[in-house]
């Protein structure tokens, strides 16, 4: 269970988050939708402690994140960054196995490599990719390596920032299935940001719509089409006309 209470964040004069409230039940899949630049990525970073909110509380498993040890807290998380954020000085497999090669989860190199190759396979990448460097891969391949790294240590809570952006429709399908599988089979809690409405329907149990720094609407994915919320309607149908301005 992750709970955000009245989260505010300002960058200079840019008041990005203006009181975000959101709760994500344990073992469920939440998808955040919303226009570009509305603060979706910032919201994820607030939960991870990469960005410190100006105001508000974040609770994970009932505990305030400020009160728990950072290491123990992050050990339960996996995160896919919007730009993949692969370490370009080490080969792909070491990126994936990063957590398995140091710290509390350290294991023999050969075993770590094997797990890395298995995770790469799950995101649709061949074993040959393992020894390449991130710069040698296409954008979509880098994204999938980032995904493999996020799930490498089988985390309890996984954040995906636009997992299917830049992927072809078939690969998007593979990734959507994978995320769904991680939630249903491994019981993980997933929080995904996406603009891809097909993904939303494939991945989500619940959906939250972020706009103007607040959650405008949240509910089950099945209620999304009948929400009656003009923001949600405009967004899911991709209309230029509506309450959400096209120029931001």
């Amino acid at each position: 269970m992750i709970e955000l209470r009245d989260i505010h964040k300002t960058f200079g004069s840019n008041h990005v988050l203006r009181g975000v409230n959101l709760s994500i039940p344990k073992g469920s899949s939440m998808v955040i939708i919303g226009g570009s630049g509305t603060g979706k990525s910032v919201t994820l970073k607030c939960i991870l402690g990469l960005v410190t909110p100006d105001q508000g509380q974040i609770l994970v498993g009932g505990q305030n994140v400020e009160d728990v040890s950072r290491d123990a807290f992050l050990a339960r998380f996996g995160m896919l960054f919007q730009g993949a954020a692969l370490f370009d000085s080490i080969p792909v497999w070491q990126n994936v196995a990063f957590r398995l090669m140091r710290g509390a989860l350290k294991r023999p190199k050969a075993e770590a490599r094997e797990i890395a190759i298995e995770k790469l396979r799950r995101v649709g990448l061949k074993p040959e990719v393992a020894d390449k460097f991130p710069a040698e891969l296409s954008g979509g391949m880098q994204k999938r390596v980032g995904l493999a790294r996020a799930i490498a240590a089988d985390p309890e809570i996984i954040f995906f920032d636009e997992p299917t952006t830049g992927l072809d429709p078939i690969m998007s399908g593979v990734i959507n299935d994978l995320i769904r599988e991680i939630v249903t089979e491994m019981g993980a809690t997933a929080l995904t940001i996406t603009h891809d409405m097909t993904s939303v329907r494939a991945i989500a149990d619940n959906v939250a719509m972020l706009h103007d720094g607040v959650v405008k609407w949240t509910g089950a994915v099945n209620d999304m089409d009948t929400s009656g919320d003009p923001y949600v309607d405009q967004f899911i149908h991709g209309r230029a006309e509506g309450p959400i301005a096209a120029v931001r």
């Binding site: 991870l48 990469l50 998380f77 954020a85 000085s89 990063f98 710290g103």
Partner: peptide, 20 residues
Amino acid sequence: AEIGTMKVTEQIDALVTLST
């Protein structure tokens, strides 16, 4: 240049999330 690039491409953030 190396660490700065890591910073702007979120690699430093990624390190933190990987408990490093």
